[in-house]
Design a binder for these strands. Structure first.
Lengths: 213, 213
DNA sequence: ACCGAAAGTTAGTGTACATTCACCGGCGAT
DNA sequence: ATCGCCGGTGAATGTACACTAACTTTCGGT
């Protein structure tokens, strides 16, 4: 309806595509739907992108940056590195409202990898996130807030794997997923392990005064 | 070409479908390809399965059984529960030659979930595997070979998440994935954590006499 | 030897969807 | 005032693919 300059329309199409892919998946989303959601007709899509696949690649590159920026912002208000880490653990972008749709698309892309360009984009993305988490862990270790038993790098990989696994299985809605009959949650286990040996007592103390995070 | 009794044909179709789905993905594989690969014509597929989706569900269910049977077999020659667990950790079906193709498809399905029937199949699958791992952990705990700090259930979830995350990121071929600059690997960390506090020393001892696993 | 059921085939049908063709209208530079 | 460019549309087009109807061959039991 409303006429837009090419650059704006392109951006808008990408915005719309992210939402649509998140909801329907790449395969499930149709160009007709995308056009309708964007308030234009199909040929417009092809004015801006060579093909649906091309559009998909553009979406991935774009969401990579976006995700890390969102993470950064989310951690900014934390008091200290330990708190930041707790938030990091609690704010798995695969599960939070903002991120989970986007991450569905990214993991979907990880499972396909037909184009080397997509692979490269994903490698960049994971590397960036790993570096980010590594830096967080290192900071907390330097302040003695986190056990130094393992290197920041390996700890960050563990966190990524755990978060990814959790993010994949969570949406399946499996009964008793990620917790046991006593109400223990994987999240708690991770925090305890990361915060060192005394962590369990600390955890117990915190439990009674209703943790804000 | 060669005529087969229904049961055999059904099995053969499933065998073929696993390979094809692994290679092309569920969406990418066509019924025509499947028929050709199986050496029959398309209607045969529909004699044995109500639909392509139905076939996929059968594949998922079957892979669940298969994985567990393969694990069972792989673990059988281990001396004790602790050894079994070590093997379990080392035999991530998402990474082994046999499993990795089909697990890519399964994770793909987890990211899409269009049909509730597929969702159910996936839930069954994950549940079965979780139960299996839980039982292994419990056995090792009962013999005091594994730290009782966390319940078998929660420990099993951690292992599943870690394995899944590792299996998703591994194929991306990221530099330094899952290990740090000192050569420490996530696998080692998991083993150490699971085997309790003395695990590190035990690990060191074992390292010198060239562990067979 | 025959017949009925089981296994298989040929040749569609219908449709969902990415992609394109041919045309339209308004706005800004001349 | 007008004309060409650019953002836009309506209506195909083609094709890939799941699924099916109707017919044929083979096999095993009597």
């Amino acid at each position: 309806m409303t006429r837009l300059p090419a650059a704006k329309r392109r951006e808008q199409l990408l915005d719309t595509a992210v939402l649509l892919f998140a909801e329907r998946g790449y395969g499930g989303a149709t160009t007709a739907e995308l056009a309708r959601a964007a308030g234009v007709t199909e040929p417009i899509i092809y004015r801006h992108f060579k093909s649906k696949r091309d559009l998909f690649i553009a979406v991935i590159d774009r969401t990579g940056d976006l995700t890390i920026r969102q993470w950064d912002q989310h951690l900014q208000s934390a008091r200290d590195p330990a708190q930041r880490l707790k938030r990091l653990i609690g704010a798995n972008p695969m599960v939070t409202d903002k991120g989970h749709g986007i991450y569905r698309v990214i993991v979907q892309a990880m499972m396909e990898i037909k184009e080397p360009k997509i692979l490269e984009a994903l490698q960049r993305h994971v590397k960036a996130i790993h570096e980010f988490v590594t830096a967080e862990v290192k900071r907390a270790q330097d302040l003695g807030q986190v056990s130094r038993a393992y290197s920041p790098e390996i700890t960050a990989w563990m966190l990524l794997h755990l978060g990814l696994g959790y993010g994949v299985l969570g949406p399946l809605g499996i009964e008793n997923h990620a917790h046991d009959s006593k109400g223990m949650r994987v999240r708690n286990v991770i925090e305890q392990l990361m915060l060192g040996e005394r962590a369990r007592q600390i955890q117990d103390e915190l439990a009674s005064k209703q943790d804000q995070d």
